[in-house]
Simulated scan of single mutants.
Amino acid sequence: MTARPANAHQAHILRMLPKSGPNSRAQLGDSYDLSRSKLAVEVDRLLETGLVVAHGLAASRGGRRSHNIRLNPALRFLGVDIGATSADAAVTTAELDILGHLNQPIDVREGPVAVFEQVLDMAAKLRATGIAESFDGAGVGIPGPVRFPDGVPVAPPIMPGWDRFPVREALSQDLACPVMVDNDVNLMALGEQHAGVARSVDDFLYVKIGTGIGCGIVAGGEAHRGVTGSAGGIGHIQVAPQGPPCACGNRGCLEAHFSGAALARDALAAVADGHTGELADRLAASDTLTAADVATAASAGDAVAIELVRAGGSSVGQVIATLMSFFNPGMVVIGGGVTGLGHGLLAAIRPQVYRRSLPLATGNLPIVLTELGSQSGVIGAARLITDRIFSPA
């Protein structure tokens, strides 16, 4: 379905429906300052597009009962969240309810052609379950800077071969539907706003700590991307001038101190230097260490693992404290693969933020873990494309 609302009134009505479910015309009129006759005309035109459908009779208000309307339950959207080491794909309704969800390992360093072959295979598997014959639109998140108007990644540090690859154009042709592309952490923030812990907050930060570190900024209920789409790149804020080298080419970036890769690097170095705790046992069992191993070791009381979490979380807290003074959000949500560190991570971040920020900025500031986990990205991706489809043609 390629229909789009014809004007701003129709777009506004469409955006009201996902939040409130089926609505009568009278209920819509109560929430939207539009004359009854004009509202009736716009709803009838939306019904003709197929974007909305009648849904049972509305409660009587003392006259002829009208039908409720709702977003067409037959609409299907694909949300794709591509990370550095794994990808999630989900099919949702127009109301962003997930009907099917797949996750599989990938290596983003293999380049866009190889990664998209796997993404298209996941989409085909989801269609094969019978939940979707085709897609009315797709949203895609990638772990690097995206020139948002064009749907093109630009010089992504951890994604060799992706620079200026026409992601939106290529996937739109392969999926035969409209496609929107954004940085993955922006979509995680949108997902958390729609269905997670930030659903009642209009101004918040979503800090993703995984293979890389990024920040989704929601201001006034809308994602803030900056002029070129590079807002939120906090992983490349320098925290130590003489620190370890970063994939961006500089030294001492936050990401070089406390990403999943940095945690694994420092854990391996500690074992090589003679540490003989839980980390050494896990390395002996699997010949490698990951951020998940550090989380498990910290939970088991491994002193080095606990110190790695404390030091890394402290660095993250210092950067977030700076953002408090600049942006003054109502909430900070922590997500990404390193959230397996759980409340030990929050215990390292929170004191730095509260100690280094003005009391006015942090007096009632919640710093919390994501509620949605891996679903935040796919829900946000579906939200991205539905917002586009429900905008005026």
Results as ranks from 00 to 15, higher is better:
residue 332 V to F: 02
residue 33 D to S: 13
residue 291 A to P: 00
residue 223 A to W: 00
residue 108 V to D: 07
residue 138 A to R: 11
residue 277 G to F: 09
residue 377 G to R: 01
residue 127 R to A: 08
residue 187 L to R: 10
residue 312 G to M: 01
residue 140 V to P: 05
residue 125 K to Y: 03
residue 347 A to W: 04
residue 341 L to M: 15
residue 315 S to R: 12
residue 152 V to E: 13
residue 101 H to D: 07
residue 282 R to L: 14
residue 232 G to P: 07
residue 170 A to L: 01
residue 99 L to A: 04
residue 238 Q to L: 05
residue 292 A to L: 09
residue 381 A to H: 12
residue 353 V to S: 09
residue 236 H to I: 02
residue 307 E to F: 12
residue 369 L to W: 09
residue 283 L to Y: 14
residue 333 V to N: 01
residue 286 S to F: 01
residue 132 A to K: 12
residue 358 L to I: 11
residue 269 A to S: 15
residue 71 L to W: 06
residue 28 L to P: 13
residue 39 L to N: 06
residue 171 L to Y: 07
residue 338 V to T: 04
residue 232 G to F: 03
residue 217 I to P: 04
residue 95 E to R: 14
residue 208 K to M: 15
residue 130 G to M: 07
residue 323 L to F: 13
residue 313 G to Q: 02
residue 166 P to H: 13
residue 3 A to W: 06
residue 184 D to H: 03
residue 196 G to N: 02
residue 245 P to D: 14
residue 144 G to R: 03
residue 310 R to S: 06
residue 7 N to D: 15
residue 173 Q to R: 13
residue 108 V to N: 09
residue 87 A to S: 15
residue 190 L to H: 07
residue 47 L to M: 07
residue 293 D to A: 01
residue 363 G to P: 00
residue 30 D to W: 04
residue 246 C to H: 08
residue 143 P to H: 06
residue 97 D to F: 09
residue 86 S to F: 09
residue 201 V to F: 08
residue 21 G to H: 11
residue 156 P to T: 11
residue 346 L to A: 08
residue 211 T to M: 04
residue 115 V to R: 08
residue 6 A to Y: 03
residue 199 R to H: 15
residue 77 F to M: 12
residue 236 H to C: 01
residue 72 N to A: 09
residue 175 L to A: 09
residue 219 A to K: 10
residue 119 V to S: 05
residue 198 A to N: 05
residue 282 R to A: 10
residue 231 A to V: 03
residue 130 G to P: 03
residue 393 A to I: 03
residue 272 A to T: 13
residue 359 P to F: 11
residue 352 Q to V: 08
residue 45 R to E: 15
residue 353 V to R: 05
residue 77 F to P: 00
residue 50 G to Y: 11
residue 86 S to M: 07
residue 130 G to T: 08
residue 256 A to C: 02
residue 361 A to I: 00
residue 273 D to I: 02
residue 161 G to M: 07
residue 338 V to K: 00
residue 327 F to V: 15
residue 198 A to P: 12
